[in-house]
Design a protein around this nucleic acid. Sequence first.
DNA 1: CTGTTAGCGCCTTCAT
DNA 2: ATGAAGGCGCTAACAG
Lengths: 334, 334
Amino acid sequence: MVTIKDVARVAGVSTSTVSRVVRKQGKVGKACRARVQKVIDDLGYKPNINAQALVSKKSDSLGIVIPQVSMPFFGALARGAEESTKDNHFKVLISNALADEQAELDAIDSLLQHRCTAIVFHSIHCSNEQLIELAEKIPGLVFINRLIPQLAHRCVWLDNNLGAQEATKFLLANGHENIAVVTREDQNPDAIVRLEGIRTALSTAGFPLNEDLLVGAQTADMDGGRGAVKALLARKHTFSALLVYNDNMAVGAVHELSANGLKVPEDVSVIGFDDLLIAKACLPQLTTMHYPIEEMAQYAANLAIELSENQKEAGRTHLFIPHLVTRDSVIKLA
Amino acid sequence: MVTIKDVARVAGVSTSTVSRVVRKQGKVGKACRARVQKVIDDLGYKPNINAQALVSKKSDSLGIVIPQVSMPFFGALARGAEESTKDNHFKVLISNALADEQAELDAIDSLLQHRCTAIVFHSIHCSNEQLIELAEKIPGLVFINRLIPQLAHRCVWLDNNLGAQEATKFLLANGHENIAVVTREDQNPDAIVRLEGIRTALSTAGFPLNEDLLVGAQTADMDGGRGAVKALLARKHTFSALLVYNDNMAVGAVHELSANGLKVPEDVSVIGFDDLLIAKACLPQLTTMHYPIEEMAQYAANLAIELSENQKEAGRTHLFIPHLVTRDSVIKLA
DNA sequence: CTGTTAGCGCCTTCAT
DNA sequence: ATGAAGGCGCTAACAG
């Protein structure tokens, strides 16, 4: 590997000068700059990023901590974050932390060891208190998909309540009154908020949620959706529409309905949440709430970088709004 | 950030000693080691990875270059690579390079600047010559999903020909003789090899491919699949089964067939390739060839790390074999 | 404008 | 078994 010294020697200047032309800052004579640049090109010199990070006490990496890159939702998140690094030459360091609280903490730790100063954190296991403590230590830490009241200006999140209301209202507007709801069984905060939104919209419209039509899924994937619908059908209550926590579960729901001879949307309308590829792959294509996770991640990444560079925290809020994507899984009732 | 000096001072030893206990190598007195370790724990000392990389001239990062993390196939690849870092404490540095040759080269460059010595490269734009040149410079560079004959021991790839034959034979075994094929229009090497496999299997069985039943898709996604089937149907030839380049396209194909009143698998059987989540989301669930990309990536990552550490190249070959996953999109003809 | 001088945090001989 | 010294590649004052 050719170093700055090699360039300096060949160009007949000091390393400082080379450093200056590399980073295009500081005053360098026109002729001199050209000469050095030529040597740099000729030798194919590339600065050692580790050395740069060492001396400047920060790296040019944006860290992101998510449960799993391979899950489409988080893949999209990673993609969005990466998009924001196109301009500034940042690299994305991904830390997967699916397991538990400790895994998340370790992931952050590892990023810190790399002197990552800008981090986007999608935490599902840590407590608000823990996150607040972390945030104090790391100015460039931003939370995504989570609202921590005391740290609102460092959180980029989605209005799940509004989204759920919107979805509900759409069903209502299409004449559905017997609406079944598939939520998550676990304590997932998003699930709780969405369910609240659903209840609100339903009550407001004068059709309060029939608790017999509420089922919980054990897992937030297709299997979970199938299982929940199976349980729902076993109850033998009638419903004309199904409001599902997310697209994966919704697809599972469609499968289970179909396996029971119920056609979507003719017999049952289904609406999802997220708008992942899977929603378009489903037949009928799923009507769903679009979750702008890529944009959110890009925004969060920019925010993290900004915060890591200028300490001052902009007082703005970072709330995103989902919107309805109408496809083929919801039918208008006569 | 607490440094090695801080630990040394508090523990009353030299930095060398601390360094020794941190890396658990070299001789250190039992009592001394315990004392130092305690200080390390108390202070929460974590070595600065950039400094380590600088002095040791290599980083603990595994680089991977792929077109896009957000595409499920590559997400799975990233996941596999990451899996291999669980043991050794490596971190995964992802470089997305979708655009072109230059983007791929830049991605490698950037990894090199980080002193990544182990790299898994999924190249779709570079020429064999370019890759061979790179491989000479980077001992820990491994190619995935691509066979470069001169570099076979550095390539981890899939037997696409065999896979395509297998898929074809399965259709044949189910009584299908009029088999339509949806391939990719571009010069994608995998597409070429798979098509060869299909031709071979078909000819061997005595039903050489009817060229009228061969269509190319413009893109390798759902839309591409739809478009290709649309074109195929316009030709008004009969066929009982559809062999599609990959799952995304196959799902598009199912949609287009369905839009034309053709039911899968009753009217037309469909088989895909990859076995992504989307194959299971499709209704009917897609019968497809499982592409063990996660295992392959994990293997490739291990190989890259191994090669980067011990120069000697194991003379083994790294060929993976896809296998059939039978689901609901293929019917047995009477 | 350009060069000199000090480190950044860590590891690696080489002494002791 | 432990410490001292030097240097990895680069940048940041400070001199000229």
